[in-house]
Amino acid sequence: MDTLLEPLQYAFFQKGLLVAGLSGALLGLIGVYIVLRGMSYIGHGLSHSIFGGFAAAQLFAANFYMLGAGLWGIASALAITSVTKRSRLGADAAIGVITTASFALGVALFAKFGSSGPSFENALFGSILGISAQQILGLVAVSVLTAAFVFLRYRALLFSTFDPEVAAVSGVNVSRIEAMLMIVLSLAILATLTVIGVTLVAAMLVIPAVIARMLTDSFGRMLGYSTAIGLACGLIGMYLSYYAGVPSGTMIVLVGASLFVIVLAFTGGRGLRRSADLDAHTDASALAPVAR
């Protein structure tokens, strides 16, 4: 019990626990749609792309770098959606070029000009220590926005994830829903970037959702389980990070990976069968109508 209570006497840890739990839950919730749409690689690319905006925005608008990085992230998300749908170059290749170029730009800017906000290492691997009250408010706002989006657009999100073509015929504005999802995703990545770290955000978008899929065949329950698993990973990872003295993002992801192995061992073949199609890419050929 003392092990659990001892770190709570520090204000930074209380703040960190709140932020890590919320970040895990937020990424777990939005990750369900990313995983079921086969967009895991987009989440990975987007987090790297946002890193470039994060570095650039600090140079040009030091006081508003989160806003600048947010706009960069939204622009990247919409560009990725557009490229995925329209590019005649392979979608993976096109996204790889856009996002890694943005990431490289971020590294170059950090190396040349340094940072007025989080350090290079903290941005890459996450750290709770440097998080400001403004960033906590931003995380809470993005979490509320994401939950409201999922709740109020439940049918359209579910239908367009399962069967976008029939959804479009049935009155769902699929393009608008996809654009909104990408905007919410980029805001979620931005809000959790300094907690989990840019290199590890993509893992937390995928791991809770995959574990949840292994546990249930119901979409509603998958949303709940994934959010709860993300929350648990955040809280447990934060404690382990405190005791092990390693960055919070690293521990949060390691807890998620360990949970994955445990659930895999318990669910066995049934869990594998349930999660069998989750690696299907939503590439250009899948999104654009090609059948004749």
Binding site: A167, D217, F219, A276
Partner: peptide
């Protein structure tokens, strides 16, 4: 393999005014 039951799948096409 998508995580929905038959009822959930059919309900997807209900009228757009109920999004909940």
């Amino acid at each position: 393999n998508f995580p929905v039951t038959v009822r959930e799948c059919v309900l997807m096409s209900r009228r757009a005014r109920n999004q909940l």
